[in-house]
């Protein structure tokens, strides 16, 4: 658990972070979002003491972070950044094994762990282990960056716009990957981004920051339903909010199960785990008012009509 209590950071005359309080529970994926210069990166970097906080206190599992040795603290916290920061003179395997080596693990144990992580992140060890970072694509490099952050199995993971420099398709793949990993590993993650769509997709909780302060925090649904002010609303895309909200809701939540409805053969189909946004898009595309809902194997399990889709959330 990470707790920030009335934490501030002052650079010269400027208050980059101004008295913020925030608690990130174990296993929670908390996304800090805001425009550039709002203090979100500074906040993140205060947690692993790359920046020392000027006032307030930061606790990890109830212990003041200042009571740890800096290096010991950082080796316990995974850290992934936008441009990966992979060491260009080290192979992929050596990059991933960095923190275990710093922690003086036995070489055999490091090898096993590195192989395990490469498989976890979809990098074939036989192909990638000995490659140099310059030989990787942006997406592959970022996978290595995440693997390196996870190497010593830290409880806490700090991610500073890790997917910010990637093309949209790769970014989306890696976001999905992160959600898949998180459902398995249940790390405590603090994730910084300026991309609200990314925040809505990934977050258990979104923390909106502006000018060093927290403007609003809550679940993606709560933010969409009730943005605290015009700033949050504009971050959420203003009038686009309806579609964003539809993007967060699964078809399963609104469909009529087979017993109560009869699917028409001519209706296009939509997956039960797809979003309402996708369902709406299909209706627009096919000029129809109802869809057949299918499960993972393609078997019809219900129907979704435009009327169902437009209903207010229960």
């Amino acid at each position: 658990m990470i707790e920030l209590q009335e934490v501030s950071k002052v650079f010269g005359r400027e208050r980059a972070v101004d008295g913020i309080s925030l608690t990130v529970a174990n296993g929670e994926l908390c996304v800090l979002v805001g425009t550039s210069g709002c203090g979100k990166s500074t906040t993140l970097r205060m947690i692993n003491r790359l920046i020392e906080h000027s006032a307030g206190q930061i606790l990890i599992d109830g212990r003041q972070i200042r009571s740890f040795n800096e290096q010991v603290l950082r080796r316990r916290i995974g850290y992934a950044i936008q441009n990966t920061g992979l060491f260009p003179h080290w192979s992929v395997a050596r990059n991933i094994g960095l923190v275990p080596r710093l922690l003086k693990w036995m070489p055999a144990r490091i090898d096993v762990r590195v192989t395990e992580l490469m498989e976890l992140l979809g990098l074939d060890p036989a192909v990638f282990a000995e490659k140099m970072p310059a030989q990787l694509s942006g997406g592959q490099a970022q996978r290595v960056g995440v693997a390196r952050a996870l190497a010593a199995d830290p409880d806490i993971l700090l991610m500073d716009e890790p997917f910010g420099a990637l093309d949209p398709i790769t970014r989306e793949t890696l976001q999905d990957e992160l959600l898949r990993l998180q459902s398995r590993l249940r790390k405590t993650i603090v994730f910084v981004t300026h991309d609200m769509d990314e925040a809505l997709k990934l977050a258990d909780r979104i923390v909106v920051m502006s000018q060093g302060r927290i403007v609003q925090q809550g679940t993606p649904q709560a933010l969409l339903r009730e943005p605290a002010n015009g700033f949050v609303e504009s971050l959420l895309g203003g009038a686009d909010r309806g579609l964003k909200q539809a993007g967060l809701t699964r078809v399963a939540a609104r469909m009529q199960p087979l017993g109560t409805s009869r699917p028409s053969r001519s209706d296009p189909s939509v997956g039960i785990d797809d979003s309402l946004r996708l369902a709406l898009s299909l209706m627009l595309w096919h000029h129809c008012e109802s869809l057949t809902v299918v499960d993972g194997t393609g078997r019809p399990v219900g129907t979704l009509s435009l009327h169902d889709l437009l209903k207010a959330a229960p």
């Binding site: 970097r45 692993n48 790359l50 800096e70 290096q71 010991v72 603290l73 950082r74 080796r75 850290y79 950044i81 990966t84 920061g85 992979l86 060491f87 960095l98 923190v99 710093l102 960056g145 390196r148 700090l158």
Partner: peptide, 8 residues
Amino acid sequence: EAARGMGM
């Protein structure tokens, strides 16, 4: 930044 952040 990464080197420091990893705890070197």
